[in-house]
Simulated assay, not measured.
Amino acid sequence: MKTLRSVLSLILVLCLAACAGAALADKTLEGDANVDQRNYPSTAPFIHPPFYNVKLTVEVDDSGVITAVKDNGTGAAGSVQEGNEEFWANKNKPFFDAAVNGGLLEKFVGKTLEEVKAMDMSAGVDAVSGATMVSAAAQEAVINAFEGKAGKTFLAVEGSALPLDQIDGNTVILTNALPEDFDLQVLDIRRGVRNEEIIPADSYTVEAAGGKVKIAFNDIAALKAGYYYVNVIDNSGKYRSPSFEGGPAAAQAPYFIIDSGLKADDLSFDGEKIVLASGSMADYLENLQHVQILAEGAEKPVEQEIVGHHGTVGNFIALDENGVLNADGVVKARNGDENPLFEAGKNYTVTVAAFGYPELSFSYTKAAE
């Protein structure tokens, strides 16, 4: 009898093992993961993360080894938030394509789930292509395919998820437009368009109640002028953090602005550089939204932003650290084309916008050589 029970137990164990293997036998699995959640929102500096899902199919054999990984509609509906399709095509897709064309998906072939989990996605083709976040998301999408997990949910919020209600004394009051089940945590508050300066956590307290989020500063007068980003996450892990896409006016990302107190007449251009009646040029430039350069007769201006896609800051050349206009600046496009910011003898209108400061507009003509 004992022998019979032992045999039956062995048969049961073998059947369970066979079933577990069969669950992955010659299967095509589907997985997705958020590109923007790699280091987001704790990157320093934290700026303009790519906002989409990598969607993949993963084919595995009867031993659980990956035989193929293919794109499964990255950039299509469900992968990109509604309304961001054009942004995906113009900004995100080149980075995704660079990673895929560089052999990213083939790197998973021949590996098991545990081997995929152990992969280092920061080296090799990923670093060369500049698509490290895409690579890490692809790795997680493969893992999610095996484990049946989904990427975080897009927030269905129009405009800011925490729009400014008012600044009352030392307290910044935001209206809470997040879903009711968004478990809000303020990680930190960051100043400037690059989000590099983190405000000391002991200088404020946060209270969320009654549809409002109140940030009470010890002394709000100690805050410098400019843009302040409120860095929030969902502790439950269900929702993405608010998106930066669309720029401050349209994005979900919550922020408030401390005004410099300067008037329009307090900003000027002396023919070479921007001049402030008071305050720091460094503080002004840290909050620069854009510089628009409109040639006489042109329909659209050339726009320079101090913050570029994926947090790039090296493409801004319109002004130097002292506010001097770069008369000889040359814009280099991704395809290798080069175009001067200014042509000799041509008239331009230059408009400079910075958060917390009046907009400055002036005429400029580059002298003939």
Rank of each mutant, 00 (worst) to 15 (best):
V134F: 05
A156R: 06
V134T: 13
D126Q: 12
A150F: 06
K117F: 08
E115F: 08
V109D: 14
L113W: 04
L105C: 04
F146Q: 04
S129E: 00
D120W: 07
A138C: 09
E114L: 14
L105V: 05
V125D: 01
D120I: 04
M133G: 05
L104N: 02
M121R: 01
A127Y: 07
A137S: 11
S122K: 13
F108K: 03
G148L: 05
S129Q: 03
E115Y: 04
V109R: 11
E106D: 15
V109C: 14
A123F: 13
A141Y: 11
M121T: 06
F146R: 06
E106T: 05
E106M: 02
F154Q: 04
S122H: 10
A118F: 01
T153R: 15
A127I: 03
A156H: 08
L104F: 07
M119I: 05
I143R: 00
V116D: 01
A137W: 01
E140I: 09
V109T: 15
V116G: 00
S122M: 13
A156G: 06
K111D: 07
L113Q: 10
S135I: 06
A137Q: 06
D120S: 09
N144R: 07
G130W: 01
T112R: 13
G103P: 00
A123C: 07
S129R: 03
A137H: 03
G130H: 02
T112I: 12
M133L: 10
F146N: 04
L155G: 08
T112W: 12
A138Y: 00
E114A: 14
G130I: 01
V128M: 08
V125I: 12
A145T: 08
A137E: 06
A127E: 03
